[in-house]
Nucleic acid binder design. Structure first.
Lengths: 233, 233
DNA sequence: CGCCACTTTGAGGCGCTTCAACAAACGTGG
DNA sequence: CCACGTTTGTTGAAGCGCCTCAAAGTGGCG
């Protein structure tokens, strides 16, 4: 896929069009000669603990971010969880700004291309262009909201609703926008880790949604049949 | 409490000292004549949906932020959850930057004082001072990490560990720093909502931790007796 | 073709929720 | 001041949802 000039489209849902000031935004970063990098399926774009050199915008493909947490424990297995999936036009590495080190691993779920934006260049750019600064802040804020929504889901929803919400969210974030034919790039285990469920539970809930007629299911191929049924339950 | 000049202390754990550039940071915002506001216990500093006018730094007291989420449902009760507690020197309102509207309610758990930083002033200031911009980005990044950690906890830990982790986190975030005598400003229901548990479960786990000798317990007074026992389990 | 990673489905058990009763602390008005 | 309702906290018993363990099925790829 060639890097499209998405000058009109905002980078994320909920991001406002920029102020009428100088119109240079992250979305327009195509205009800036940032290099790109290709990451093969299963390879890490970066790992937790590495010094933060750049932020990355997904050009094509898909990543998962995996947090490894020594837990409150010392010897036993550390907690680990998929904290997010990231598709085209989404930005990776934001969680590392605070410590100047990456807080999680970013692993490609398929062969993917990212645009590399060095933080040493990004921050001065944002000081120069108000719209760019505003958009970076907006992107980070959106990431806070995203993480909080995840926490809310993990804290309040039963398994069935979590899986349903995951499918809806996934379909809405696709470039096509609200497609009904999905091809999941991640395993049941990944989904389960993300949703705070076991992979067997994810599988069972998908099967149940299929029996109820809300979705069509064939391995990683999912067809959303009844959106309302997924949403209202 | 008078607004202390915490010029040396960083605003949050994990935030690096600023670069050797012009030394104007959010931490030094005392130097800027931002107004303050007092919020009585139980009152809202802001509510979800309101337009974002300012960010707020807690001077004294404590807040909870509550997310109300229409859920995937229409008629039944909406999901609601405490997404965070915020003590002195912590910043409120960051989740609203992306939509220019607050995403949650902020309610004072006790009579509290905040410093009001209008976003219309803050963004230009950050463009002028690199260190200030960097610190704002760092604070937002730290909030992403915080929310992700919460999600990780909700996704992986059993009830006992959640409560133990909550107590440790609380004690570390106190101004005194790692105090062992805590006075919880929030109810069991608040804690439960935050941890994705029922209030009865929180109460049971606290009692259990007391029986095991990890803490002393008397209503909202908690004394941390054995830190290792809380951490390593 | 045969291996391996992934998925599905079943059966049983545990952890947390739910429902319920009671105790304690608090504020309020008589 | 104490009686009173309200809010908060504790503890018990029963039930269910998800996890755990197990086994078989499926698809991709060397």
């Amino acid at each position: 896929m060639e890097p499209s000039i998405d000058s009109g489209a905002s980078l994320r849902r909920g991001v406002r069009e920029s102020a009428p000031t100088l119109n240079v935004r992250l979305s327009d970063a195509d205009a800036i000669p940032f290099p790109t990098r290709t990451v093969e399926r299963g390879d890490a774009l970066y790992c937790a603990g590495e010094p933060l050199r750049s932020l990355y915008t997904v050009q094509s493909g898909c990543f998962k971010t995996v947090a490894t947490y020594p837990s409150t424990d010392d010897d036993s297995a550390p907690h680990t969880q998929v904290t997010g999936f990231h598709f085209a036009n989404e930005t990776l590495g934001l969680d590392g700004v605070c410590t100047s080190r990456h807080e999680s691993d970013a692993v490609a779920l398929e062969t993917s291309v990212v645009r590399i934006m060095p933080v040493g260049i990004l921050e001065p750019l944002c000081r120069e262009y108000a719209a760019m600064q505003h958009e970076l802040l907006a992107i980070m804020s959106a990431e806070i909201v995203r993480a909080s929504r995840l926490a809310l889901m993990l804290g309040t929803m039963p398994a069935r609703e979590r899986v349903a919400a995951f499918l809806l969210d996934f379909s809405e974030r696709l470039e096509a926008g609200a497609a009904s034919e999905l091809l999941l790039p991640m395993t049941r285990a990944d989904i389960g880790s993300y949703l705070g469920l076991e992979l067997e539970t994810v599988s069972r809930m998908l099967s149940k949604l299929q029996r109820e007629g809300a979705i069509g299911l064939n391995g990683r191929q999912v067809r959303i049949v009844d959106r309302a049924m997924l949403a209202h339950h």
